[in-house]
């Protein structure tokens, strides 16, 4: 069923689509993280804002990605921008909620100690709160990245899609090899990101595993 000559002949296509897949994901998670960090910073401690903002992000998250693309296309056309808006929209909920949950999970006694020892507001945020929120923030980045890697496939419909494009081409031309290659690479990418970011999350928070004597 797998024809190696097809793979060989399409290597440049596969390679470029793989890169596109990674680029679309990286940009989406990067921008999503920036927006989420800002949003979390502004709504934190303002109870009246938390509900509406997370509610909006949650709505964007619930709306199927294909529908989101469909809403956008008449406005922003078949553009990179359209693809990224849809992808970023889906990361916001995961990332914002994890950042907020991470900050909320910082032990209050550590905060009190930080204040009492004379940390300023930003010193406390940077040296105490963010490091302690890091396990949940990293978990958010991990979930958001793996989710986005999957969602990128759908943007094949508007001419992007990375490996989704490889699969779609295989589907359109009845080329089973391309379908399989696209599938295997996608799953491999997802697993690699899941494991890799999980490892990274543990690597940057060595203290979270320190238990017992």
């Amino acid at each position: 069923m797998i024809r190696w000559d097809v793979i060989e002949g399409n290597l440049p296509l596969i390679a470029s689509k793989l890169l596109e897949h990674l680029a679309l994901t990286a940009v989406a998670v990067g921008i999503g993280l920036a927006i989420s960090a800002l949003a979390a910073y502004f709504i934190r401690g303002r109870k009246r804002l938390v509900g509406p903002v997370t509610g909006t992000f949650s709505l964007l998250y619930t709306i199927p990605s294909l529908a989101l693309l469909a809403f956008l296309v008449p406005v922003t056309h078949l553009s990179f921008l359209t693809a990224e808006i849809a992808l970023v929209s889906c990361t916001l909920f995961i990332l914002t909620r994890n950042i907020l949950a991470g900050l909320a999970a910082v032990p209050t006694d550590a905060l009190e100690a930080a204040d009492a020892m004379g940390y300023g507001r930003f010193g406390r945020l940077w040296h105490v709160e963010l490091p302690l929120a890091l396990p949940l923030i990293m978990a958010g980045i991990r979930i958001a990245t793996v989710t986005t890697l999957g969602l990128v496939m759908v943007t094949a419909l508007i001419g992007f899609g990375g490996l989704g494009q490889v699969m779609l081409r295989g589907y359109n031309f009845r080329n089973d090899t391309l379908v399989l290659v696209g599938f295997v690479l996608t799953v491999a990418l997802g697993l690699a990101a899941d494991l890799g970011l999980g490892w990274l999350g543990r690597a940057v928070t060595p203290w979270s595993r320190a238990r017992g004597t």
Partner: peptide, 18 residues
């Protein structure tokens, strides 16, 4: 959970057509 996260539905859908 790990495999479920890593396998996009779109990919599954197209994979099954053949």
């Amino acid at each position: 959970a790990g495999i479920g996260r890593a396998v996009p539905s779109y990919a599954l859908l197209i994979l099954f057509v053949p």
